[in-house]
């Protein structure tokens, strides 16, 4: 396979703020490549530079053989972009929106008509094509937002957090759509702060934090970063910051994350710390209802690399 996206030493400064710092990655044709990181990690700035929306301070971007500095038009023609915001016209119907975006990519006549029909079918909204987008639910808008990005059958699809703020049903529909598009040969650059999505979709993943890529590889390669570690998941109520500090201080604990009424503890010796973990929690007044040991995931990797949760 050959690289269809090449990003080298990409940096973007906004005055004193370095939003993206010396980022490099490449995406092979037919891959789903994930950029995972918390809000503010620099994912959107990176994707904006790749789509030529903002100019890099330094570094190079080549997509489908076209350099962003020299051939932005040709580069953009090879891309489909699904922005984080629902970038549609609410007072136009879904079909009118799609016709407009298809035209912007040079589709005309029967080719446009056919592309719009296909995109509506893919979004599962063919029967509501003549309704104004303002009347759609959030999930339906998201689906049309994606459809508008794939009308012209781009070589590479950039998707920036496409599932933010939608219901589980629409989310599943979107994830399956990405799978289908990729199965049809489309290369996808997918950014998210939901590690489950990235784990489910992506062939390779780059984890970003504070504008830099802190780890990159396949899911298994990244899991190896926390190789030999387990995640002890504790269902517990009444965890305070003081309790968290006491848990962190337990010997053998590599990291702790608190998610709603549960704790996820990263450790290389789950068997030996289990008893101390539960007794520490109980002694601090927290009420433990269950304990289980699972395989590490991307959350564990991020926790291990940064000492904080993806949700922080």
């Amino acid at each position: 396979m050959s690289s269809i996206v090449e990003v080298r030493a990409l940096t973007k400064r906004f005055d004193e703020l370095v939003a993206v710092n010396d980022v490099s990655f490449s995406i092979e044709e037919g891959e789903v490549f994930g950029l995972l990181g918390p809000n503010g990690a620099g994912k959107t700035t990176t994707i904006s530079m790749v789509s030529c929306l903002i100019e890099p301070t330094s570094g190079t971007i080549v997509v489908n053989g076209h350099d962003s500095a020299r051939e932005p038009g040709a580069l953009k023609a090879a891309l489909g972009v699904v922005p984080q915001e629902i970038a549609l016209y609410p007072t136009l119907t879904a079909a009118e929106n799609l016709r407009f975006w298809g035209s912007m990519y040079g589709l005309r006549g029967d080719a446009l008509k056919s592309a719009v029909a296909d995109a509506l079918e893919l979004a599962g909204l063919a029967d509501r094509a003549k309704e104004r987008v303002e009347k759609y639910s959030g999930g339906m808008k998201r689906r049309i937002n994606i459809a508008a990005g794939i009308l012209h059958k781009p070589r590479v699809l950039l998707m920036d957090e496409p599932t933010v703020g939608i219901d589980p049903q629409s989310r599943n529909h979107i994830l399956e759509t990405v799978k289908d598009l990729n199965a049809a040969g489309m290369t996808v650059l997918y950014t998210s702060h939901y590690m489950e999505e990235v784990e489910y979709l992506c062939d390779r993943i780059a984890i970003m934090d504070h504008g830099v890529i802190i780890a990159e590889g396949t899911l298994n390669e990244l899991r190896d970063v926390v190789g030999g570690m387990d995640v002890v998941a504790v269902k517990v109520a009444g965890v305070t910051s003081e309790v968290l500090e006491r848990v962190r201080a337990i010997e053998g604990v590599e990291g702790v994350e608190s998610v709603e009424d549960a704790l996820e503890v990263l450790t290389r010796s789950s068997g030996s710390i289990m008893g101390r973990l539960v007794s520490t929690l109980e002694s601090e007044g927290a009420h433990v209802t269950s304990v289980s040991v699972t395989e590490p995931n991307l959350e564990s990797v991020f926790l291990h690399l940064t000492g904080k949760s993806l949700r922080d």
Binding site: S48, S51, G73, K76, V81, P83, Y105, A148
Partner: peptide, 14 residues
Amino acid sequence: REQTLARMMSTPSS
């Protein structure tokens, strides 16, 4: 504000 301008700018149009 609604990013449709950014989306237009990401198309091949100058």
